[in-house]
Design a protein around this nucleic acid. Sequence first.
DNA 1: TATATCAATGTTATATCATAATCCAGTAAA
DNA 2: TTTACTGGATTATGATATAACATTGATATA
Lengths: 148, 148
Amino acid sequence: MAHDNIDLSTLTKNELLVFEALKESEGPMKAYDVLDVLKSHGVRAPMTVYRALEGLEEKGIVHKLDALNAFVLCSHDHPHQVQSFLVCSECGMVQEISPELREAPQVEDKILGVVRATGFQMREARLEMKGICQNCTSKQGAHSTAAE
Amino acid sequence: MAHDNIDLSTLTKNELLVFEALKESEGPMKAYDVLDVLKSHGVRAPMTVYRALEGLEEKGIVHKLDALNAFVLCSHDHPHQVQSFLVCSECGMVQEISPELREAPQVEDKILGVVRATGFQMREARLEMKGICQNCTSKQGAHSTAAE
DNA sequence: TATATCAATGTTATATCATAATCCAGTAAA
DNA sequence: TTTACTGGATTATGATATAACATTGATATA
């Protein structure tokens, strides 16, 4: 697990709590879901969670998936300029695939090149792909192909 | 303008109103901003706007920018599988760059290849890149380079 | 004509997501 | 001890989005 490499000593108390909650969850969590989990640790207000999430994002440990209003741990060691996620519309699964795309480095290079050519200074980018994951496809495929 | 090619006869009354509002705006609009504009046309409720936006999205005429909770007209003729947007953190400018990326088709092909290899059936994808646009860069650059 | 149906729209209420503003506690330096 | 700073707690509210149900109007058809 990539998360083992993170220096937890730089995290505040609440950041650590949120980090642990996300680590347990094995998937993206909504802020208010994190809040529910942390209520047993005395956290009461949304602000507390959002502040911690903001801190974790600044440290590159957490990403927000805007399409879901949800947050995930960054699943790779070296923060990348383009993060890529598969989001299953069926079961909600989220998979970060930046590592796979890194094996095709032309992709990021090309993107960065095109962007730079427009005079744009990119800070961060996310590619969020929505569709049906393999698991859901095989489950459904056996029964029908209609659905839509 | 690419929007001239759209067959407006397929739009419902409210979809047409929202379409016109977005066309005027020359940029992304929040749903409630659209609502404000359409109040002069008798539209009162958020639902009306959200329903029309949903219809326009299904017809491929509008995209939602999740990172901004905002909606833009699709600025090119042929809906593409990966839509790419530059979002300026400074001035809020949004530019769709799919046409530029199309000149580098390896990018989309590679992405689609990698994704397909994971067994994922992609429906739609958006690459949202945040940074500073050329305009803001040149304005700021003259005065300072610090800022962050 | 009556009536069934369907899509679009209207309306009300509420859920969900996020932040502003203010105050407080600990702690480290002057 | 003051001062300043960082993180945290609390309260309230803003912003975004949808649920649930009623209404309308067009079309089909018995």
